[in-house]
Each structure stands twice: as structure tokens, then as C-alpha cells.
Design a protein around this nucleic acid. Structure first.
Length: 235
DNA sequence: AACCAGGACGTGA
DNA sequence: TCACGTCATGGT
């Protein structure tokens, strides 16, 4: 393989190791592939046609908010509750009783904060009339920070905006690709500057980093057995 | 039984 | 700017 750059070779290695992840996870697909937590098979590997409709797009955005500092299995429970009550729809959510909404999303934690975030976003989402929001518009919403905004842009709107989460930061600082104190944008640019702006690559890369982190960067000491460290030396 | 999970916000220095 | 507390449930 021609050495394009360090970042790309990491992507290559992760993809070879874990395979395409097929993110974002959608409820309609978790039936065939229930609650993926290990390196099993992706949700819709090598199929980049999602979201297929406006409700799936909304579902991704809701999931992005609910998963803030929260385990995905808990988010899935909340999403299922919303789906069962037929509330995974922006208009219906806006008309719904707030207490019922809170009860539905309770498993995802922080339900008092998150219900505000969801309603504010739902209102914004309907006001878009199917337009694609800008990153700034998303960031201006209360409850949507850089990671959530980038997650929505990348997975709900297929815009190549790299997502930096706690795992990503943990990995790149451990590998000494950025200083410990590197902020969100510094890490985001590290990836964006060295990759072609292809939403499919960005989608896979972020999902692969999460998968990799679950194997080697979830318990201390971080990075034990991480094969990326060996690879970096050999370059 | 502590610890933390695919963060964001408010506050005080 | 920046470090720190707060928000909440459920699995290990």
C-alpha cells in the first residue's frame, strides 16, 4: 500500500481489522443485528444509503443527543420507547405530553436536560423544511455542542464533518499525534486535513475509532495491546 | 460497590 | 480562557 499519510494508514488498518461498521445504528436495523457491542458485524455495512427518509434522519439526530455521555444500549432503550409510542417524529414529539416524553427517554439518563434539548431541536428540525442545517446553526442551539453537531451533519446529512469524541481524543493523545491539551478543533483538523472529504470515509473512520477504543481504550491503563502503536513505529 | 458511558452547560477565578 | 461541578440511568 502506498503511504499516503499516517492518518490514512491508521484508517486502513482499522478497516482491515474490524471491517466496515455501517453506522449510524438505526432501530429498524437493530432487529437483524441486535445491540452490537463487540466487533461483530456493522449495522448496514457498505450501504451508505441511510437515512432513507426524514424520520430516520430525525432518529439519528435524536440518538446523537441522547447518547451524550451515555452508553448506547441505554439510548436504544429510550429510542425504542419513543418508537413504540409513535413519538420518533419531530411534529408528533412537539405535540406530545412532556411527562410522557420524559418517561420514554428516562433510560438514557439526564432526562430533564435531554427533553429540553430534544424539543428545541425538534422545533429547529421542522423549521428547516428538509433543508440541511449549517454547523453554526446547530451549534447555536442550546444543548448541541461540537460533537453532537458533527455527528448530525455526518450521519444524518452525509456532510464530511469529522466527529471527535472522548475515545478519539484518548486514542490520538495516547499515540502522541496531538498534545494532551489539544482541543476539539485541533483534533478535528488533524483528521480533516489529511483525508479526502468523503462522508463515507468519515463515517467509517469515526465508527472504527469507537470500536477500537472499546477494545483497547476503555479501561486503564489505556492502549494496552493497541496494535496502532507498533504500526506507527514501523512507518 | 465504585466507576463510567459515543457531552454540554453554568459558574467562578 | 479554563478548570470544575452538575446532570441520571444502567451495566460491569
Amino acid at each position: 500500500m502506498a503511504k499516503k499519510n499516517l492518518i490514512f494508514s491508521i484508517y486502513s488498518t482499522l478497516l482491515d481489522t474490524y471491517g466496515p461498521q455501517g453506522w449510524w445504528p438505526l432501530l429498524s436495523l437493530s432487529g437483524t443485528n441486535p445491540t452490537k457491542t463487540g466487533s461483530v458485524q456493522g449495522y448496514h455495512p457498505e450501504d451508505y444509503s441511510y437515512p432513507k427518509n426524514k424520520n430516520e434522519q430525525f432518529e439519528i439526530c435524536v440518538g446523537a443527543i441522547l447518547t451524550q455521555n451515555t452508553n448506547w444500549t441505554n439510548v436504544e432503550k429510550a429510542l425504542k420507547n419513543l418508537m413504540e409510542k409513535n413519538l420518533l417524529d419531530a411534529d408528533k414529539m412537539l405535540k406530545a405530553n412532556t411527562e410522557i416524553l420524559k418517561t420514554a427517554i428516562r433510560p438514557a439518563g439526564y432526562f430533564n436536560q435531554k427533553i429540553k434539548k430534544l424539543l428545541l431541536f425538534a422545533e429547529f428540525f421542522t423549521s428547516l423544511n428538509s433543508k440541511t442545517p449549517s454547523r453554526k446553526e446547530l451549534l447555536d442551539l442550546w444543548g448541541i455542542g461540537p460533537e453532537t453537531a458533527d455527528t448530525m451533519l455526518l450521519y444524518a446529512y452525509k456532510i464530511p464533518s469529522f466527529v471527535v469524541d472522548a475515545y478519539t481524543k484518548r486514542i490520538v493523545t495516547h499515540l502522541r499525534l496531538v498534545p494532551q491539551k489539544a482541543d476539539y478543533n485541533e483534533i478535528k483538523h488533524l483528521f480533516e486535513n489529511e483525508l479526502e472529504k468523503d462522508f463515507k470515509v468519515f463515517q467509517e473512520f469515526h465508527a472504527l475509532l469507537v470500536e477500537h477504543a472499546k477494545h483497547y481504550y476503555s479501561k486503564k491503563p489505556y492502549g494496552q495491546g493497541c496494535f496502532l502503536k507498533k504500526e506507527l513505529k514501523s512507518l
